[in-house]
């Protein structure tokens, strides 16, 4: 199949998926108890003010009409306003999403760096030390809740050892001039080493927390695929013709394993980019996840909807990019 046709089809599919997500999310937020009008005007306001605000927000209209209004708004690139921050939601997201992207990317890199090599090495030697280490670490990572691990790390490295800085946002130093919104990247671009260190050091503990929990299932998946590949007929055939073990592992087995493992990595990245609510909360990082729960607790609908859509979009985009990459890399998709 032609790549362009494939991509167009996937983009169309993506639109449909986003449409579905927006519909469900919209209905759910409208069914939540609590009239935002009260939250906006305050409990003491008189009845007529409440009615006026309700009408201004369109909350008195039937739900399907409210939804059509929302979709029209979306189509023009407007995500609505947050009454809590008094900003357009796009502005809020523009300042918060980079924090999530920065942390999510760092966490993904760390996760891949420990889980894929460990999965591969442990698959090659059953019952070896690396195999047992893989079992122990992945078992730990899978079973411990993210926020709990984050708290333990804070307790040990901040409160006890005092190696880590207090968990107070994205940086305790200077904010580098805005280019990408990712503080570490912007600091490097500006050549500001101090600002880079200040931003990076704030990311270490939350990134490690996420790398442990996200990497754990990846160890198992990688090990499983590697074992399966090493037992396959073509590996046996290559060995039977004397191909050296180094080439068997690196040239013959690895590419067969990295294809499915990269799909798993993409799923994890999609999850991370959607905002990791509890970790952002524990480390007080102003990302999308924290923005969403702060908004939920105050019936601030527009940001909640936006966060849900953004999360879905992250998944879909990362997945699409991964599929396109596979389309280019995997010879089996070509004919």
């Amino acid at each position: 199949m032609h790549l362009a046709v494939y991509v167009l089809r996937r983009l169309a599919y993506m639109l449909v998926a986003l449409f579905g997500v927006s519909l469900v999310a919209f209905v759910v937020t409208r069914l939540l108890p609590g009239n935002p009008a009260y939250m906006i005007v305050g409990e003491m306001a008189d009845e007529s003010t409440v009615i006026a605000v309700t009408e201004r927000l369109g909350l008195n209209l039937p739900i399907h009409e409210q939804y059509f209004r929302y979709i029209q708004q979306l189509a023009s690139g407007d995500l609505g306003d947050s009454w809590r921050t008094r900003n357009p939601v796009t502005t809020d997201i523009g300042s918060r999403w980079p924090a999530t992207i920065e942390l999510g990317s760092a966490a993904l890199i760390l996760a891949l760096a420990w889980s894929v090599p460990l999965g591969i090495v442990s698959a090659l030697r059953r019952h070896s030390i690396s195999d047992r280490l893989a079992n122990a670490l992945s078992g730990f990572g899978v079973s411990i809740p993210e926020f709990f691990l984050g708290m333990i790390l804070l307790l040990v490295f901040f409160a006890t050892l005092e190696w880590a800085p207090p968990a107070l946002g994205r940086t305790l130093g200077d904010v580098p001039p805005h280019t990408t919104g990712l503080y570490t990247v912007d600091a490097v671009l500006a050549g500001d080493w101090e600002a880079f260190k200040a931003a990076a050091v704030q990311m270490i503990l939350p990134a490690v927390t996420l790398a442990v929990t996200v990497g754990a299932p990846m160890v198992r998946v990688t090990r499983g695929f590697m074992r399966e590949t090493m037992a396959s007929h073509h590996i046996r055939s290559a060995r039977a013709l004397g191909v050296p073990e180094r080439s068997i592992v690196l040239r013959h087995a690895l590419p067969n394993v990295l294809l499915p493992v990269s799909t798993m990595g993409a799923i994890m990245y999609g999850y991370l980019l959607g905002g990791t609510v509890l970790v952002e909360f524990v480390f007080a990082r102003p990302g999308i996840g924290k923005y969403a729960i702060d908004s939920i607790s105050e019936s601030d609908f527009a940001p909640v909807l936006a966060a849900v859509l953004l999360s879905a979009l992250s998944y879909l985009v990362v997945y699409l990019v991964m599929d396109i990459l596979h389309f280019v890399i995997d010879p089996r998709t070509r004919t």
Binding site: H233, H234, R236, S237, V243, P255, N256, L259
Partner: peptide
């Protein structure tokens, strides 16, 4: 193996690597 004794298994399709070219695999041996 390969130089003095060679073996062919059942199912030739499965005994060639799906992500390496056929010629490349022969050349490597």
């Amino acid at each position: 193996r390969g130089r003095q004794i060679a073996i062919m298994f059942q199912n030739p399709r499965a005994s060639l690597n799906p992500v390496l070219t056929v010629g490349g695999q022969i050349a490597e041996v």
